[in-house]
């Protein structure tokens, strides 16, 4: 048993199934997924487009609900939680990073972070979070005045400022070139290491898997492989 496993289970998913009803057709995004996530672990979810990895992450983050199965966050049942319970869960426990950053265009970097810290307890100062992602100098810029990599780092600062216990990242480098992507991954690696935040990262880029504690491969809504990296590769050494 590794150190992370000893620290305890953060997420426990059993028989997770998700069916999207698209009118005439039904899309099976998840077909009975069993997965545990351990505290402090950096997990990479790998899979092709449509493999169900985003759906899995969204359900873990309380952004979506499962059609069948269970998810436990610590000892909290997410699958039966009400809308307001899920809101409370996202507000205090989860940090999200999306592929397209999803910043609020009318707010500056600092204000984007503040929009989240204002509603949680025990948050970092927005400036501190931005400093952690290396954007201490650009706090008063609007999203439109920032490059893609910078925008994604603001998004990460926004996600970590509340000191979440889990950080869920959906293709955080998907819209970035590899150099910029590496910078973003380094930030995520540092947050995982320094704050001990359990991190789940979705990618279809197999090269990124090298920085993970564990790599979970999904295909067609099922977990097809789980692999533990004996030796993690630092993010700055990644190339693709």
């Amino acid at each position: 048993m590794s150190t992370t496993e000893a620290n305890g289970v953060v997420f426990q998913a059993r028989g997770l199934t998700k069916v999207y009803d698209m009118g005439q057709v039904q899309v099976h995004a998840l077909r009975g997924v069993d997965l545990d996530l351990y505290s402090g672990e950096l997990l990479v979810l790998l899979g092709a487009s449509g493999s169900g990895k985003s759906t899995l992450l969204n359900i873990l983050g309380g952004l979506d609900t499962a059609t069948a199965g269970h998810v436990l966050y610590r000892d909290r049942e997410l699958t039966t939680a009400s809308d307001s319970e899920l809101t409370e869960y996202r507000r205090h426990h989860v940090g999200f990073v999306f592929q397209f950053y999803n910043l609020i265009p009318s707010l500056t970097a600092r204000e984007n972070v503040a929009a989240v810290t204002e509603i949680t307890r025990d948050a970092m100062a927005p400036e501190q979070a931005l400093a952690m992602v290396g954007l201490g100098e650009r706090v008063d810029h609007f999203p439109a005045q920032l490059s893609g990599g910078e925008q994604q780092r603001v998004a990460i600062a926004r996600a970590i400022a509340k000191r979440p216990s889990v950080l869920l990242c959906d293709e955080p480098t998907g819209a970035l070139d590899s150099t910029t992507g590496v910078v973003v991954l380094e930030v995520l690696e540092r947050v995982n290491r320094e704050l001990g935040t359990t991190t789940a990262l979705i990618t279809h880029n197999a090269d990124i898997a090298a920085m993970a504690d564990r790599v979970v491969r999904l295909a067609d809504g099922r977990i097809v492989d789980v692999q533990r990296n004996i030796k993690k590769k630092p993010a700055r050494e990644l190339r693709w």
């Binding site: 999803n102 609020i104 509603i119």
Partner: peptide, 16 residues
């Protein structure tokens, strides 16, 4: 719609 979803994702309640 999209911004509402972001606010929701970060834990803003429906009433807020």
């Amino acid at each position: 719609r999209e911004q509402i979803a972001i606010l929701k994702a970060f834990g803003y309640g429906n009433a807020e």
